[in-house]
């Protein structure tokens, strides 16, 4: 198997806090990899380092053979690693389709018309095509999460990092979202690294998960095995349950 995106010994310190401590992981081509862990474990921090939003204190990130450690976020995005935000961050002053067009124009390598076309395709893909000329303020939370995904997809990424795109939506929407994530991989062939608190979604989507607790990787494996792991149960529920 070939790794699309690989982290080697990533660490991040915020003052005295080690938000990530020597985290290594590898996203294989066509894989949906889960990064799970309790609140504050450092999942979003790990995503931010992979996407170039914050530089790691130490460690390296590779996109295929290319080292992308320390590159600014816009270069990482253009190279093919794009993230969504746990708390959605649409461009409020752009229409829904413009939100995606701007991403496509910067990253996809297409011209103006091609970018608009790609943006519209991606909105259709996530089911927001009808809302394309409205503003993000008019969308529900679930729709904004879809916009966040459509905008990232408009970059035509090689690796897509989804930060809790399911948490917070109702069960019906959650089911649709699971199906959507699977379609991204199956129909667009994009490798996906996702964090999620909704375990049912992780169980059904991910072939492989890695578990982060207090910045450290504590377990890795198939989701069914990992949830039986004593260290993981302890991390989520505390010592007495383990």
């Amino acid at each position: 198997m070939t790794a699309v995106l690989r982290a080697e010994g990533l660490s991040k310190r915020f003052g005295g806090l080690k938000a990530n401590d020597n985290v290594s992981l590898s996203l294989e081509k066509g894989q949906i990899l889960g990064l799970i862990g309790p609140n504050g474990a450092g999942k979003s921090t790990c995503f931010a380092m992979l996407a170039g939003s914050i530089p790691p204190t130490s460690g390296r990130v590779f996109l295929g053979e290319q080292q992308i450690t320390g590159l600014p976020a816009f270069r990482v995005a253009r190279a093919g690693v794009v993230r969504t935000h746990q708390i959605v961050r649409p461009f409020a002053n752009l229409t829904v389709i413009e939100n995606c067009t701007v991403a496509a124009a910067q990253c996809s390598g297409r011209d103006d018309a091609g970018s608009r076309e790609l943006a519209r395709e991606m909105l259709r893909f996530v089911g927001l095509e009808k809302r394309r000329n409205g503003y993000p303020a008019g969308l529900t939370l679930a729709q904004r999460k879809r916009l966040e995904m459509a905008r990232a997809l408009s970059c035509a990424p090689k690796a897509l990092l989804l930060d809790e795109v399911i948490a917070g939506v109702n069960p019906v929407e959650a089911r649709d979202m699971v199906a959507l994530i699977r379609r991204i991989r199956d129909e667009q062939g994009i490798s996906i690294l996702m964090t999620e608190h909704v375990m049912a979604a992780v169980m059904s989507l991910c072939e492989h998960v890695v578990v982060l607790d207090a910045g450290k990787l504590i377990a890795a494996g198939a989701p069914k095995e990992v949830v039986q792991n004593a260290a993981v149960i302890e991390a989520y529920l505390g010592k007495k349950h383990a």
Binding site: S53, A73, F74, H85, A92, A103, Q106, C155
Partner: peptide
Amino acid sequence: KSDVDAAGDVGVS
């Protein structure tokens, strides 16, 4: 103007 960091995350320099 809307969000410098999010703009960077979609490739805007």
